[in-house]
Simulated assay, not measured.
Amino acid sequence: MIKKVLIWVLAIFLALAAMIYQRSTGPTYEYKGYLEHAGEAYKYKLLRSHETTDGAKIELPYFEGANYEATLNYKRYQTEDAITKLDFQLEDGRFVAPLPVQPAAGKMEYFITGSINGKPFTIPEEGEDRIVLRYKDPVSDFILVPHVTLMIIVIIFGIRAGLSAVLDPGTMRRWTVVAFSAMTVGGMILGPLVQKSAFGEYWTGFPFGGDFTDNKMLIMWVVWALALAIIGFKPKKKENISRAAVLGAALVMTVVYLIPHSMGGSTLDYDKVDQGIDPKEAIRTGAE
C-alpha cells in the first residue's frame, strides 16, 4: 500500500511539474515583468491572447502622484503597417491602453515605451522581440472545461502508467486504458471542437496543416493506441515488451507535452485579408 501511495505521489508531482512548465511557456501566456518605482518592483502581466468580443486592454501598474507616462506601440503582425501609438489612460483605477479587435487568428504585435519620474523604460527591452497577441473566438465552457479536465487526466494517468511499467506492472494496463480513453475523448473529440469554436476549423494538424498543438495531440494519441495494442487487456507470461511499450508511450507523451502550447497555431494572413479574402478563409498554420 505504501508503495502504491508513493507511486501516486510521484506521478502527481511529475504531472504538476509538467503542467506548471507548460503553463509558463508558449506564445499565448501572459508576458510578465516588473516596473520599478520608489525603490519597489511592481509586477505587470501583459496579454498575449484575447477573445474577439472586444479589443484587448493592455494594463500597467499605476503610480499615483508620479510623473508617469506610457505609450502603447502596435501594428498588425507580420505586416509593413506603420506603428500606431496610443497613450495609456487611467480607467476605473487601471492604467490601460486598448488594442484594436481583430478577427479570429488575427495577431497584433506591440511594445510599450514610457517614463517614470524622468526615467525611461521599454517593454520588452530594446533588442528583444515584440509581444504578439492573438485573438480567438469564444469557446463554450461546456466544451472547454471537459477538454482541459480530460487533458489533465491524460498527463497524470499517463505518467502513472509509465511508473507502473517500471514499479507496479500489475496495474499498468488499467492506467493505460484510462490515459488512452481520456486522450480519445478529451484530445481527439473535444480538442477539434475547441479548435473549431476558437478558429473555425476542426483540425489544422497533419495532414491538413502544421498546427503544433494538433500534431502533438495526434502523436500522443498514436503512441497510447500503439501501447494499448501491444499490451492487450490481459497479462502475458513475459511482460518485458508490454512494459517497454507503456514506458515508451509515457516518455513520448511527456516530451511532446512539454513543447510549448499553441506554437505553430492558427495565424491570420493579412496579405490575403488586404486582397479582399474573407478572414475565415485566410488563416494559415505552421512554424512562422
Rank of each mutant, 00 (worst) to 15 (best):
I12F: 07
A179N: 00
Q22P: 03
I112R: 01
Y74G: 05
V255R: 03
A165K: 03
M183S: 12
D271Y: 05
K3D: 12
E51K: 01
K57L: 15
I277K: 13
A287T: 13
I277C: 11
A56H: 02
N73S: 12
L72A: 10
A225Y: 02
W175H: 11
K238P: 03
L258T: 11
G26I: 02
I112W: 06
E51G: 10
A105I: 02
V178P: 13
K234T: 10
E59G: 00
E239L: 08
R23Q: 13
S164I: 03
G114C: 10
Y202I: 09
L10S: 06
W221I: 00
T53H: 05
E91W: 03
D129K: 06
G114I: 13
I83G: 07
L46Q: 03
A225T: 01
N73C: 15
F212A: 13
L86N: 12
S164H: 10
Q78L: 12
S115D: 14
Y21W: 13
A182I: 04
I155M: 01
R134S: 14
A18W: 01
D274C: 01
Y135W: 11
H147G: 05
T213I: 03
T171Q: 10
S115E: 15
G210M: 01
S181Q: 10
I123M: 04
D168T: 07
F88T: 12
T84W: 11
I116R: 00
G114A: 03
A15P: 12
I152N: 08
V185I: 15
P279S: 06
F206Q: 10
M1T: 15
S140W: 08
F206M: 12
M183L: 14
W203E: 01
S266W: 04
L268N: 02
D54M: 09
T71P: 03
I7F: 11
E69M: 03
F63H: 08
E64N: 04
Q275W: 03
T53G: 07
T176P: 00
F142P: 06
